[in-house]
Design a protein around this nucleic acid. Structure first.
Lengths: 149, 149
DNA sequence: TAAAACTATATGTATATGCATATCTTATTG
DNA sequence: CAATAAGATATGCATATACATATAGTTTTA
């Protein structure tokens, strides 16, 4: 009755588990955010742009831990939807600064209660302490990945 | 010195945290798997196909919690690379069964030690108990998402 | 200062992902 | 049994993601 060694991969794989939960939560958020016309990726990028006030595309990719080319394309989606606009940096014309438009700001405020509702549901159902513990563990995993030799 | 309410979103958002770690780990795996020509998504799909022996595309999408259309396309990548082949089901000609080729099986065995090395590193560094706890918590989150009203 | 090195952004290519929908096949039902 | 419902797969479309590389601008250095 011995189980194949591949059994444990299916059950235990950190990557698969993280990817699955990540996909599911992304999907749930995208469904709930539908009325706002935002995807969760876009919402989260808007939060970052709002929070950091003045941010170039590569700074944005840094803080969001995205590849620069991904950040460029994701910003383009936001531009197409008129949620952000970009301006050439006055001191470095290679650089582009990203800003929220008034539409983007409105969307940010429109989507936040939806974000909050799911977030609170998760935090409440697994408990505040457990949730903090989850975040710390994820940070630990992130650290291991970043420092992988 | 009051912080904006958006600060806590940046720090605490379950979706963003999960997506970030998931992206990072995917990236690390894809780099390490480079010599095999597999991506981690493809590897994990091969493991599932191997483990379940006989599996239609929609069954595959079920066990991997992927959309059926995503499963179809991901299988197509594996077919293009000759890692799997498909046969029409004998009893239901709508259905397609997916099987590993010998190349696919070889790739599976080639990639598994690479998967294992990272997996063990993570488990060891955060500790076996903590890791089990992480998996349980992720399952809990998955459950909350699946049963969201 | 001119050449070289570095930095910021963009583009081509490929995979991953899901929604809406189409097509074809099997199952159900009046 | 014919009509309808249900199921399996595929396709069009759009976004997300990263790598390799190109292009353009800035900084460093010989």
């Amino acid at each position: 009755m011995e189980k194949s060694k591949f059994d444990s991969i299916l059950q235990a794989c950190a990557c698969a588990n993280l990817r699955t939960v990540s996909r599911s939560l992304t999907k749930l958020y995208n469904q709930l955010l539908q009325p706002t016309g935002l995807k969760i990726t876009q919402y989260y990028m808007l939060v970052n742009i709002y929070q950091y006030k003045k941010l170039s595309i590569s700074e944005l990719s840094d803080v969001m831990m995205l590849d620069q080319t991904t950040a460029t394309r994701n910003v383009n989606v936001l531009i197409r939807n008129k949620f952000v606009h970009v301006e050439k940096d006055e001191h470095d014309s290679r650089s582009k600064c990203v800003f929220l438009t008034s539409i983007g700001l409105k969307k940010l405020y429109e989507a936040t209660p939806i974000w909050m509702k799911v977030q609170e549901k998760i935090e409440n159902e697994i408990g505040t302490d457990n949730y903090q513990y989850l975040l710390r563990t994820l940070t630990q995993v992130q650290h291991i990945i970043s420092h992988y030799d």
